[in-house]
Amino acid sequence: MTTAPASIVTRSLPYVLVTGGGLGLLAAFLLTVERLRLAADAGYLPTCNLNPIISCGSVMKTEQASLFGFPNPLIGLAAFAVLVTVGAALLAGARFHAWFWYGLQAGVVAGAVFVHWLIFQSLYRIGALCPYCMLVWVATVVVCWYVTLANAEAGRLPRSGVLLRLARYHTVVLVLWTVAVGGLILQRFWSYWIM
């Protein structure tokens, strides 16, 4: 346990977990509700729209939306709830053993990998954007970033020199990520918006 005053990153982590987890949970919940509605209305005729930002319904009918054989948002319902709980526990003064932090690290990395796969699929395979899904992308990446930095600062990650240097520019990295993904979205859907 460190005695030095905690950095801004470590101090922010509980709030990031509660808000990021909370927003992710909300998005996953809304996606689940919409998926259930879609299931109830089987006779619905899909349409193709010039506007790529479409109701999540058409994205949800794709194979990618149920990668493991059940709708993806169900994973979100469970996982984001855990993040909120961990954040709240930290705010309440909880201390965790290292193995707990490793577990959290593994979870958020898996989430971030999954989310980037979904971003790729959404942009280049499905060719449509769904607003709630994009909220999940952002929430997952932000949480993963801060959990990773906090773990690095606590000395729980090997060879974390680079991470510690990046920690000083923690929001810069997130801004760059957002600009990069936003740029890919603009580039991919340019013709839709210009037509």
Binding site: R168, H170, T171, V172, V175, V179
Partner: peptide, 14 residues
């Protein structure tokens, strides 16, 4: 902080 300055700077440029 430098972090905030750079972040806002990139945001403004974009």
């Amino acid at each position: 902080t430098t972090n905030l300055k750079i972040s806002l700077g990139i945001g403004a440029v974009v």
